[in-house]
Design a protein around this nucleic acid. Structure first.
Lengths: 138, 138
DNA sequence: CTATGTGCAAATCTTTTGCAGGCTA
DNA sequence: TAGCCTGCAAAAGATTTGCACATAG
């Protein structure tokens, strides 16, 4: 981890009022360290920590992803009943879900245009509009 | 179950090449017996069978919903990592997901207009576009 | 009669939780 | 120091599966 990454990640955690522990720094660096958006599952992120030599328990990966989510630093995306995905990008945007590989990627937001949306039922408000474009092998 | 319902449900099962067993008839009647669209989970459907005196095991409810799905008679909708929902309506249409009650309902399809959609990546095709409008208490 | 379908209990898989010890502010 | 974190193992929930018995065609 470079010093530039370190301060980026540290301030990111600070924004969520989360203490910069070794484990959180490691996970946060994997998530946002290079400025790219990431789509991970607990398992995939856990595998990455192992791959780069960081020692973080699976339970902590789960707990930390939940903590990041509760702190408004990442988003949870539901596309597959078998596992939870988390997205480092916070704005409401469409996704591609690759059904054969179980991969989740961003879809170009400017190419998905929703012209109209029903009003929320009485007493309710729209929390978010999820658009998932499910892809299968042609 | 009226005779009209019986023939409706029987032909529905036949369309999926599924034998009309007592359990399947019971479940199918609850799902499409009155012509209305239903959104169920395995648990909710199981509870309904119990409520109307039909004896079907929970495992069979799970297996049967999977069978209906594989036969193209119902659709699986993913909106909540904790449980699977099934929709008796087969066309691609938007949903309201009530986050506080975990209920899933149809959203008026004509009020959700998607003007443009990105092309599927090379070698892929769009299987379905899921639109879920997540509602929270206002 | 033969292939399917069903029920039960056990197994699986992902995610959460209790608790003792460690670490940040 | 006080409170928040972490790790481990156990718990929890939803769903699937193995196997013996039942049933549709």
């Amino acid at each position: 981890m470079t010093t530039a990454q370190h301060s980026l990640v540290t301030s990111w955690l600070a924004r969520g009022n989360l203490r910069p522990t070794r484990q959180r720094l490691a996970l946060a660096t994997l998530l946002i360290g290079d400025g790219e958006n990431r789509h991970v599952t607990a398992e995939s992120l856990y595998a990455q920590t192992a791959a780069c030599g960081e020692k973080v328990s699976l339970a902590t990966v789960y707990n930390t992803l939940r903590a990041f989510c509760a702190a408004g630093l990442i988003n949870e995306i539901v596309v597959d009943g078998a596992r939870n995905y988390f997205d480092t990008r916070m704005d409401d945007h469409p996704h591609f879900y690759w059904e054969d590989s179980h991969a989740l990627t961003d879809a170009p937001a400017d190419e998905v245009v929703i012209t109209s949306l029903p009003a929320a039922p009485a007493g309710m408000q729209v929390a978010r509009v999820d658009v998932v474009i499910r892809l299968k092998r042609a």
